[in-house]
């Protein structure tokens, strides 16, 4: 099996010296693996991503416990540009492209200037042929899907070894998402990089990931490979919106996720 690229061990993140948002989570990403991080709003997914990519300082937050290791180097609480240069690159959820720079300039701005920059650029235009046609267009005038492509493309210009994508499918049509996931697998296969997806749409994430973690209230509550999660009853019910196994139809039996979860938990605890 391939070696572990990124490992988060029992990390705890505290905001404003007062509020704990992530409580001792552990996860790992291996070389060439696509890993998904699932959870509802407020589960702590974004905080985890920020902790890995070094953006906590801006919100007066820091990793107080545990370790984040990338390729043998400790990276917790390091500045973002340093982490990016090590090869951990994030595609953020919002404002993912430089709006006033053209597509070509967006691809030229990233700092680790590879010697074979031209070749890399050609390769990227192969992954996203659409971008080649838009070279001179300003980032702010792109559609949502094009923007996501450009964001991934400019992230690839940093020569990442781990690409992290925050909400790949957010606000995009299912067709576009399908196209993007196909290209992501292509990118993984050709460049041999690992990908960490943070998603609310479990269906999308589980369709391409090799392994997935489910977060809730700042903790990881469930993890496993695709097959295990896909067949896990809780995941089916609450994240995939399928029937809960009693033959009820998903549209009629869609209950509030939290309520049922709570109920199921207490049933587990109290027998």
């Amino acid at each position: 099996m391939s070696s572990v690229l990124l490992s988060v061990e029992k990390a705890e993140v505290v905001y404003k010296r007062a509020i704990t948002a992530v409580q001792g989570i552990s996860l790992s990403v291996r070389d060439g693996q696509i890993v998904a991080l699932l959870g509802t709003n407020g589960a702590g997914k974004s905080t985890t991503l920020r902790a890995i990519s070094g953006f906590l300082g801006l919100d007066d937050a820091r990793v107080t416990e545990g370790a984040i290791t990338f390729d043998g180097h400790r990276i917790e609480n390091r500045p973002p540009h340093e982490i990016a240069r090590r090869g951990v690159v994030l595609v953020p959820e919002r404002e993912k492209v430089f709006q006033n720079l053209t597509v070509a300039e967006n691809l030229a701005a990233p700092v680790p200037r590879a010697a074979d920059k031209r070749r890399l650029e050609d390769q990227i235009y192969q992954f996203f042929p659409r971008l080649a046609d838009l070279r001179g267009r300003v980032g702010g005038l792109l559609s949502g899907g094009e923007r996501q492509m450009l964001a991934i493309a400019s992230a690839l210009m940093c020569r990442p070894r781990l690409l992290m994508i925050d909400e790949l499918s957010l606000g995009l049509a299912p067709v576009v998402v399908q196209d993007l996931t196909r290209r992501l697998i292509m990118i993984r296969d050709q460049l041999g990089i690992a990908i960490l997806l943070v998603e609310q749409s479990a269906a999308v994430a589980l369709s391409i990931s090799d392994y997935a973690y489910v977060m809730e209230n700042g903790r990881i509550v469930l993890d496993g490979d695709r097959e295990r999660l896909n067949s896990h009853q809780d995941v089916q019910e609450f994240y995939l919106g399928q029937s809960d196994g009693n033959g009820q139809d998903s549209t009629t039996a869609r209950r509030s996720y939290r309520d049922v979860k709570q109920y199921r938990r207490s049933r587990r605890w109290y027998g």
Binding site: V14, A18, A21, N217, G218
Partner: peptide, 8 residues
């Protein structure tokens, strides 16, 4: 040291 997560 810290306030708890809920009701913070």
């Amino acid at each position: 040291k810290y306030r708890p997560l809920t009701g913070a």
